[in-house]
Structure formats: structure tokens, C-alpha cells
């Protein structure tokens, strides 16, 4: 439908990004901008937090910033 969002914040989408390369919370938020998903800021934060807790990604510091990543 024309009104549907072009990006969906799903566990599978997050998993694909984190397998590709390590990302900070800010990097992830950029991939799921509210204007693209149609979610509110609060929904985005809550859903992304739940997904990250489920995925339980590896973490590493790059340039003093914590990055999440997954291996296949």
C-alpha cells in the first residue's frame, strides 16, 4: 500500500546488519529512522532494545565506542 513504511524494524533486519559489520546503537538507529519505519522514537528504542536483548550480539570497542556484531 502507498502508506506502508519502506523499512521494517525486525529481528531479522537487525541480524542482517550486525552480521555485515559491527555497529553502534547510533548506527542501528540510523538504519531504522522513524520517518522510514513509521514508528515513534519511543517505539523504536523499545523494539530495538528487545531485539538486541534477544540477539545477544558480541560486543567490541572500536575507536572507544561500543559496537555490536554477530557471526553467522
Amino acid at each position: 500500500t502507498p502508506s506502508s513504511s519502506d523499512v521494517q524494524l525486525t529481528e531479522e533486519a537487525v541480524r542482517r546488519y550486525l552480521i555485515r559489520k559491527p555497529m553502534t546503537t547510533k548506527d542501528l538507529l540510523k538504519k531504522f529512522q522513524t520517518k522510514r519505519t513509521g514508528l515513534s522514537s519511543e517505539q523504536t528504542v523499545n523494539v530495538l532494545a528487545q531485539i538486541l536483548k534477544r540477539l545477544n550480539p558480541e560486543r567490541k570497542n572500536v575507536n572507544d565506542k561500543m559496537h555490536f556484531y554477530l557471526t553467522e
Binding site: T24, T25, K26, L28, L29, K30, S41, E42, T44, V45, N46, L48, A49, L52, K53, N56, R59, M66
Partner: peptide, 20 residues
Amino acid sequence: SSSEADEMAAALEAELNDFM
């Protein structure tokens, strides 16, 4: 805006605090 992005990142990190 970037300040909203910063606020969201801070909120997300707070949500993940125990986990991180």
C-alpha cells in the same frame, strides 16, 4: 535531527544498561 538521534541512542543504551 542529530540531537534527537543522540537522545534516542542514549535512551537505547539506558534500556540496555544491564545487558551491556
